[in-house]
């Protein structure tokens, strides 16, 4: 009953790889966007905020479709990436990572933004009077003080990326060994008569991973709060 089949093991490993790449590759951009939203005033800030949060509220199938018509092999951005970087996204695991990154982005940005806003800007001023320019203040003061919240946001984004289904299956389909993550593998087994045991195994595994990530994220977030209270 609890023996995983090769297809299931492959799906689990692929899910972890997709979620890890999605999280790490989007993290620098998430930090920049969170910083822009937390600390800067500029025209178009409201629009940026809406754009970042759209994947959180749109039907995932819409996000997937938009990715498909933007990054498909015959779409402009897709053609550009393939001819200049040799990077194909459509129906590949890299595309699954992009879809997961886009879907997780709002959660990560929100968490990082909150932790940046919690950093006392008076400390940043103090660092400025000690000779540190704005970028160095960010790297030596803001980022270290926001670190627990930043890690919490990253873990939360990882958990979200791991469970992404709708945008992924729309953009890169459900190909075992290439784009079949835990979520799409469960979808397949629920459509297959007699595969109830496989569904149950994968379900239990995804609950365990999600709960562990959420727990870790909570612990880190709580540490940020107690830091800022001291």
């Amino acid at each position: 009953m609890f023996q995983l089949s090769d297809v299931e093991t492959t799906a689990i490993v692929l899910s972890l790889k997709v979620a890890l790449v999605a999280t790490l590759a989007s993290l620098p951009l998430a930090i920049v966007v969170a910083w822009l939203l937390a600390r800067c005033r500029f025209p178009g800030k409201g629009l940026l905020n809406v754009l970042v949060h759209l994947p959180l509220v749109m039907p995932p199938v819409v996000t997937g479709y938009l990715l498909l018509i933007t990054f498909g092999r015959r779409a402009p951005a897709g053609e550009f990436l393939e001819s200049w970087l040799g990077l194909v996204l459509a129906f590949r695991w890299t595309g699954a990572a992009l879809a997961a990154a886009v879907m997780a982005f709002p959660l990560t940005v929100r968490a990082i933004r909150l932790s940046l806003e919690a950093v006392d800007s008076k400390l940043e001023d103090a660092a400025g009077t000690l000779g540190a320019g704005p970028l160095l203040v960010f790297l030596t003061v803001t980022l270290p003080l926001a670190l627990p919240g930043l890690l919490a946001g990253t873990v939360l984004g990882f958990a979200k990326a791991l469970g992404e289904f709708g945008a992924t299956i729309t953009f890169v389909s459900n190909i075992p060994g290439e784009t079949q993550t835990i979520a799409s593998a469960i979808y397949t087994t629920t459509q297959t008569p007699g595969a109830e045991a496989a569904t149950l195994r994968l379900t239990i595994i995804s609950i365990i991973i999600a709960a562990a990530a959420l727990g870790l994220s909570e612990v880190l977030a709580r540490r940020t709060q107690s830091e800022s209270r001291r």
Binding site: A126, A127, T129, A132
Partner: peptide, 18 residues
Amino acid sequence: PHRRRIGYVFQEGRLLPH
């Protein structure tokens, strides 16, 4: 400020907590 070569003692100290 970072190019003015000043030293500033704030009312609340503002030591970097980390």
